[in-house]
């Protein structure tokens, strides 16, 4: 049972990581909570459903197209709603409220267009998992694990070593100073939404394949995604992925002894604990009083 719970935890963690990493990129660069991030994944999932099941477009076209649409979606939200608000120097609380408004609007729009019933995407057949030392794992789940691993490595390298990655960290750290070193902060913020939302698009695809599609799917995962980002450290991109795995594993092993109804409670307790004891998260840097 241990091995199965471990696998379950890693799969859950992978799905949280897909949400938390994109969210983290947007948060660190823009310094406000973009709650509608989950809706980006939802919109992506429904787009995939519409193009694949509805229009019959093959997956080698719809998969990349969905990711592109998700990136565009996030970019437009920033351009049309957040940017004008930022220009008026509104506080991050107002931006958070705006993001909640967007989230409610999008989720309801999806429900209006597609109905509240759960949609199933039958692209890959579901079957008995592959047995591995007494535990089962399906091909889709293996694919998710591998993809998230690649994402992790990719984000780490991008953030630490690439020019754009360093610039994004610079903007996240000190936007005023960034301006004076010739960095176009607004353009970097655009990039953060494009990249973060593209990852949410990928999340939408994988979650649709592994579970199914519902209007509230992305928003439900935002809670865990947000918790994962806090646990891993909101200032650290790879940290948000590590935090996601920590959450996934703690949830699944915690349920070993506790009734399964406590699963969500575990997420909240973990969130609270970190906020109280180590708010910078596992990888977050506590700059202390020096700066």
């Amino acid at each position: 049972m241990f091995l199965q719970l471990l696998i379950n935890g890693l799969i859950a963690g992978s799905i949280y990581a897909l949400i938390s990493s994109g969210f983290s990129i947007i948060y660190t660069t823009n310094k406000f909570v973009h709650f509608a991030h989950g809706s980006t994944a939802t919109v992506a999932a429904y787009f995939l459903y519409w193009t694949f099941s509805g229009l019959g477009i093959p997956i080698y076209i719809t998969f990349p197209l969905t990711i592109f649409v998700a990136a565009l979606f996030g970019f437009l939200i920033h351009l049309v709603i957040y940017l004008p608000l930022k220009k008026r120097k509104t506080s991050s609380v107002i931006l958070l409220i705006a993001s909640i408004g967007i989230m409610i609007f999008c989720d309801n729009l999806m429900q209006l267009l597609f109905g509240a019933n759960v949609k199933i995407l039958s692209i890959f057949p579901h079957g008995r998992g592959i047995e591995f030392l007494g535990a089962y794992i399906t091909p889709i789940q293996i694919a998710i694990l591998i993809i998230v691993l690649i994402l992790f490595v990719g984000l780490w390298t991008f953030s630490k070593y690439s020019r754009l990655g360093k610039i994004m960290r610079a903007v996240a750290d000190n936007p005023e100073l960034a301006k004076t070193t010739g960095i176009n902060s607004v353009r970097i913020q655009h990039w953060s939404f494009v990249i973060g939302s593209a990852i949410a698009g990928l999340a939408g695809i994988l979650i649709a394949l592994e579970h199914n599609i519902e209007p509230s799917m992305g928003t439900h995962l935002m809670i865990q995604g947000f918790t994962a980002a806090v646990i891993g450290g909101v200032t650290s991109l790879p940290g948000s992925i590590v935090g996601a795995y920590v959450l996934g594993l703690v949830e699944n092993f915690g349920i070993w002894w506790l009734p399964s109804g406590y699963k969500s409670a575990i997420a909240f307790v973990l969130l609270l604990a970190f906020l109280l004891v180590r708010p910078q998260g596992i990888f977050g840097i506590n700059k202390g009083a020096r700066e």
């Binding site: 960290r169 610079a170 996240a172 750290d173 005023e176 301006k179 004076t180 070193t181 960095i183 840097i285």
Partner: peptide
Amino acid sequence: PAYKLIGKGISYVPQGKINFGIL
């Protein structure tokens, strides 16, 4: 706009938070 001035040849060392701490 500020970010274009480096290209013109003007550099600025401000007061206060003068570096990118986490870099």
